[in-house]
Amino acid sequence: MSGEREPVSREESSTVAAVQEEAEAVALVPELLISDLLRYGVLLSLSLVTLGTLVTFLRHPDYLVSSEALQRLTAPHPVPHGLRDVVVGAMAARGQSFVMAGLLVMMAVPVMRVGLSLLIFRQQRDTVYVAITTAVLALLGLSFLLGAAE
């Protein structure tokens, strides 16, 4: 008798544990998702910036010796400030365009974080926060649009 009962109770306890684990995993998901998004976004951006810097110095050996080049680089000058410029530059393997692409990824990380929060609030059917998050996202979009229109 006891031999028959044992597997049942073990099965029961394992399903209880599984349910508990599942509940815990579901509760943890939003925080973990956001945390991972932030972490990997920053890593990707830093890799692009480092790669771009290396390419720049490989392609411009004079940057290692000439001090005139610095004045050209730090004086006020036009900087690529359209998405198209950055993409074209990156295609031509221009180091500074890779750096710029990395910086753009960095700028996109918080925006994506807000977008992810919007999805999470929507899934939780939290209408007040869906509205708040949408407004924040709209303000962020506005900053890029207004800046470009200036």
């Binding site: 036009p78 900087v79 800046g147």
Partner: peptide, 8 residues
């Protein structure tokens, strides 16, 4: 940063 980027 969006505004700064667009402004160069």
């Amino acid at each position: 940063a969006g505004v700064y980027f667009a402004r160069g």
